[in-house]
Design a protein around this nucleic acid. Structure first.
Lengths: 342, 342
DNA sequence: TTGAAAGCGTTACCAT
DNA sequence: ATGGTAACGCTTTCAA
């Protein structure tokens, strides 16, 4: 049963022909090289019979392309990244690519080490959510002619293609939505972070607030492990210290989860005492009572664009795409938590 | 800046020495091969200076080992698998391995295709949650001397190492827990599936029920995409048709989520009208009001055991481990949803 | 129409 | 103490 690794050479020997001929046939160049149909058929049959499969390793070594893409995110167990991973994977396999994943934990050192490991010419492309201080590493990557695509966040200071979403605009709209539903004092719960998508969300919130002559009220939580205990309590405190709060906008879904805990402990009723909306939609938001309004990122489009860019670079236009800087729109799902009429 | 791929040959030429010498030094065989400290140092300095990194591809081709492990699960975006992926990844990188992931969607054909793709000698090992009808494919894999480890579920009919959890025992205990808290009519919500872990959970439930002379009451939902709409309604119907239900045991967390929706729609109060417990703990269970009791699988231990087994096979004892059939215990977290006193 | 051989970057055996 | 070289499995140019 156990077929021992059979190679082109074995095939050639068994059939009494040359390696070259077999290779040509394997690569569909039989016609082009005018190899007789008879031989072609014979070889093809034999290949099928012995169940030969070419060695990707040898092909990669020879061709200088590995058909491997690295998917480097902050944390692969995070629902957002895991969902994109799922989509990416599907599309990659369909196109003959494999995906290797890794998590940076948002640690620049880990990210650099990881990238270094992969630069060892064994991968073709990188899809990356950049950590802080990764500019130079990314620049090197591009100079070394790897295909690289940033996503979720981008780096303004360098010219690197990316796929992100309309953070500022959506935050603006969500805030506006709260205002239109009667909120006069909206708290924005976010996390202290240099990540550009976070800054954009904050900016969107502030714009809407200022446009309407309201007072900005931001709780900037320390950047830490989401599973840390303190978050919920800090949000609780914030809510208690701002008794006139009538709306809460969470910058990410995990903050919202902590916030909902806090609201629950404080016996605040949504949407009676406060309206609530969150960035990053989540299955749980429709399970929670009341359903929580949220901004949904277009996971599938993100994955689609990422793979589209990758394939264009890898299979076609070369490692530098003129301008593949994509910003996708989100969808605000208005649910009971922010509907004043309920 | 852009260092062009520099190889051992380049180093040897630049330094006017032979490839062999460089290779020996690179592989820490300088002492063994009695290469002068002077030369060794010189070479090491040069290597550092030019930033040389060996080609994994060439090494793999030469050594017949790729240092790549495939992590093949039902759905990588599923929280359970994503969390394990995270742990596995960490441990793999620490040991110089990379992880390629893929999702089978529980489709045997897709699984076979995927395995076929990877068998092309470009990976060393497989960590798999087997789909139905995968026996022969797995057998082939083992015969071809790949390192393979099953997890989450195993295949009784074949001799393949695995890491699973005590499904039957934990289901038994959880049911017992409901009984001890006064339940007389416990419904078990599960999914129609050949998956052995599902059958074990059902068996555990039935044992406890029979031990106490109660009546088994099982809702077997069709196996389908978790995001499908119908599930919640089917559970609703089940609850309505069994008016005397005083306890509900969900076989997986996503069933519990659907069930909680249903209970909510029906205005059933937990734990007043019914006690609830679920298999597979989840962050939301502690967010939900009331907190939902659940059986937690030991994610980290599972990942640890998987990598331990893999490394033993790959780095040491060879592809066949005598008896690495691990069954890990779970933890039942009793929370408000199943505490009759509350 | 087919074949020989170079080369991708390593490792390791066999010389010297 | 160090170097030459075959081999891993494949693609592709050049020759026949």
């Amino acid at each position: 049963m156990a077929k021992k690794k059979i190679s082109i050479k074995d095939i050639a020997k068994s059939l009494g022909i040359s390696i070259t001929t077999v290779s040509f046939i394997l690569n569909g160049k039989a016609k082009e090289k005018r190899i007789s149909d008879e031989l072609t058929l014979k070889v093809e049959d034999y290949i099928k019979a012995v169940g030969y499969k070419p060695s990707h390793l040898a092909q990669s070594l020879r061709l200088g392309k590995s058909k491997v893409i690295v998917f480097m995110v902050e944390d692969i167990s995070n629902q957002f990244f895991a969902s994109i991973a799922r989509e990416i994977e599907e599309k990659a396999y369909k196109n003959g690519y494999k995906i290797i994943y890794c998590s940076t934990n948002n640690d620049p050192e880990k990210a650099k080490t990881l990238i270094d490991t992969f630069k060892v010419r064994s991968v073709d492309g990188f899809i990356i959510t950049p950590t802080p201080n990764l500019e130079n590493t990314i620049i090197d990557l591009i100079e070394d002619e790897f295909a690289v695509l940033l996503f979720d966040r981008w780096i303004p200071s360098i010219d690197c293609n990316y796929v992100v979403v309309e953070n500022e605009k959506s935050a603006f709209e969500a805030t506006l939505h709260l205002i239109n539903n009667g909120c006069k004092n909206i708290g924005f719960i976010t996390v202290e972070s240099d990540q550009i998508q976070m800054k954009d969300r904050l900016r969107g919130y502030n714009e809407a607030i200022e446009n309407h002559g309201l007072k900005s009220n931001v709780l900037m939580l320390p950047f830490q492990n989401p599973s840390d205990q303190g978050l919920s309590q800090k949000i609780q405190l914030f809510i208690q210290q701002n008794a006139d709060l009538d709306g809460l906008f969470f910058a990410t879904n995990y903050l919202a989860f902590e916030g909902l805990q806090a609201l629950n402990t404080l016996k605040k009723r949504i949407p009676i005492d406060l309206l609530v909306v969150s960035f990053d939609d989540h299955y749980f938001f429709t399970l929670f009572q009341p359903n929580i309004s949220a901004i949904e990122q277009p996971l599938e489009s993100i994955a689609e664009k990422l793979m589209e860019g990758m394939l264009r670079m890898l299979d076609g236009e070369g490692t530098y795409l003129k301008d593949f800087k994509i910003t996708l729109p989100n969808t605000l799902h208005v649910r009971a938590s922010s509907d004043a009429k309920k």
